[in-house]
Amino acid sequence: MKQYLPIYLGTLIAMSGCNAYYNQIETISVDGVVQMEGKPIENAEVTFFSDNLPMAFGMTDAQGRYELSTRRYGKGATPGTYTAKIHMTDQTAEGGTGKRLTIPKVYSEKGVASVTVSHDEGRTFDFNLVSKPSKKATDWLDIESEQ
């Protein structure tokens, strides 16, 4: 039994170190609604992507609502600036109807908008997509950011 004590103590120390790091990362609750031309989108993945922050993601329900979380730090997103992207899944549909819906690739490749998550301003982000977006990313990014 005594021979396993150093291993047991080392494991406990390592685990407490991980938990201390886990608790140092702040997350802010982030939610919103995704629609296509005013109609909710069901089963679409919303991701907030940044080069230097943990990615946050969530799935839309039948009303188009989503709530973000991170793989490592739980619910919410860390404060900072992200590119919001909307990804189609095999089950993406017009909210509550089951009717398959195609989301233009530009929303998953280039993004929908630049968003800032913070205590003061950014906690709810609603996105109203159009079925035929402009070919120039800067055109629709500017429009979405103004809303």
Rank of each mutant, 00 (worst) to 15 (best):
I103L: 11
Q35M: 15
A113G: 00
V130L: 05
K132D: 10
E42C: 02
I103R: 08
L9H: 07
K2W: 01
P79N: 08
G58F: 10
A77F: 06
G95T: 06
F57S: 12
T102N: 12
V130Q: 11
P6L: 05
F125L: 05
K39D: 03
S145G: 00
G98V: 04
T124S: 10
I28N: 02
K110Y: 11
V33M: 13
L5P: 01
Y82G: 03
Y22A: 02
G32T: 07
D51T: 15
T89E: 01
L101T: 01
G98N: 02
A93Y: 06
E26T: 15
E146Y: 05
S114K: 15
D90Q: 13
P104C: 04
F48K: 02
G96W: 07
F48R: 06
T70Q: 09
S145R: 15
D90L: 14
E121F: 15
T83H: 01
S29F: 11
G122I: 06
D142N: 14
A137W: 01
P40F: 11
T70A: 02
S114L: 11
Q3A: 13
F48Q: 02
S50M: 04
E42I: 03
E45C: 09
K99P: 00
F49M: 11
G95P: 03
F127P: 00
T102I: 14
S29K: 14
G10V: 10
T47E: 08
D90V: 10
E37G: 10
